[in-house]
Write a protein that binds this DNA or RNA. Sequence first.
DNA 1: CAACGTAAATATACATCGTATATTTACAGG
DNA 2: CCTGTAAATATACGATGTATATTTACGTTG
Lengths: 225, 225
Amino acid sequence: MKYSAQNTKKKPGRPAPDDALTPDAVAEAALRLIDKVGEENFSMRHLGQELRVQAMALYNHFEDKDAILNAVAGLLLSKIKVPQGNGSWQSRVRDVAFNLRKMALQHPNLFRLAMTRPTHPRSALPLTEAFLSALADAGLTADEQATTYHACFLYTRGFCLWEIEELPHSRELQSRELADIADRYPRAAATRRLIVEPDPQQQFEAGLNMILAGVSATRPRPNKK
Amino acid sequence: MKYSAQNTKKKPGRPAPDDALTPDAVAEAALRLIDKVGEENFSMRHLGQELRVQAMALYNHFEDKDAILNAVAGLLLSKIKVPQGNGSWQSRVRDVAFNLRKMALQHPNLFRLAMTRPTHPRSALPLTEAFLSALADAGLTADEQATTYHACFLYTRGFCLWEIEELPHSRELQSRELADIADRYPRAAATRRLIVEPDPQQQFEAGLNMILAGVSATRPRPNKK
DNA sequence: CAACGTAAATATACATCGTATATTTACAGG
DNA sequence: CCTGTAAATATACGATGTATATTTACGTTG
């Protein structure tokens, strides 16, 4: 079911000011389209059609497709709400991580894009800052903050990508194959079920808690706020 | 610089048994090719040329391109050596993680493929088993093993992908942009340097140790071996 | 040993993709 | 009003994955 031609018979040439595209409009439309159809089904022609425009018109506003994807990534990151800190530093770290995961679950087709693009350092800064502000309150040195932030972020991102992209496939794995596996790797097969079957939210929280416990263990007397 | 036609003038028809392709030969060639040129420059025609064969010949041995990529992923995973356990459970977990990272650094163009494809559960089993055997010796319950394994694995994979795919880009970020960043997010900018500049090996180890410390903290009295 | 079915290759073709280039149009500034 | 230019269309090219048709020679069977 290819997207049909829908009789776009527009004359070439400069459009009326109100009908003109803007980079923002292009980026927003691209975001909505990818959200709907996934990145692998997103093409310049497809996006053009969504905007009632030929594909090449988009190149007046963006260098190439890559630039559009970068813009989409930045746009999505800018929409993540970062909680202003209340409560213990642990619960603030958790809040940030939970917000990230919430975005992942709401926009599974956009999450990888948002977390992967080079735009990332720039637009993810509020998020980073929220993480670090919590870790600073834990009394960590700058070095420890860096390591801890990195570990928490990588874990959170990795878990969300796993939950979105791998868990669904894992769940439909044939029991035939599972039996085959269980023969030679009994422990791995059993563990597989313990990872795939339980509530992901709890799994996520348990892993994050483990990291936070490691932080506390390394540095047993944090500053009281 | 497109790969040139190199005068492949072979007659159609069934080849001599010695000249015939095999699925294994195709998968190995694909692995080598992707290792060299990266997944995004890997095409059926390109692979065919490597094997002195038209692209369509490959479809006699694999369903489609996706199936070839799956085979490559499995092939690479099967080549990872898993250390048989010596030393404390912590050092055994570290060994497995280090082996994974070693493979990542040796084959940066193949690592994402290997870690992403659905083949994963099947071929990664020896690796999983090695992780779990160490965690079992730590005295963890099956549930705890599952959570811990998952956290360690996600962290390791996430770190390696970051090191391979993001760190290089981060390092060439313009100082102009950095200054811009430092104004509004001083903490994040400072942390960025602490993450991007130090030795990745030490960073990786520090993060992993943090997780392992969390495990020990949660369960302070492991079984002695 | 000849006939034949079929496995494994080539040959050709198509839709789709990103995008380079050329053309067209209408607004904006002198 | 004239004109330069911004923003659109139109067209075209090279790649890509792969469906389909064709060709060839191996292996089997009479």
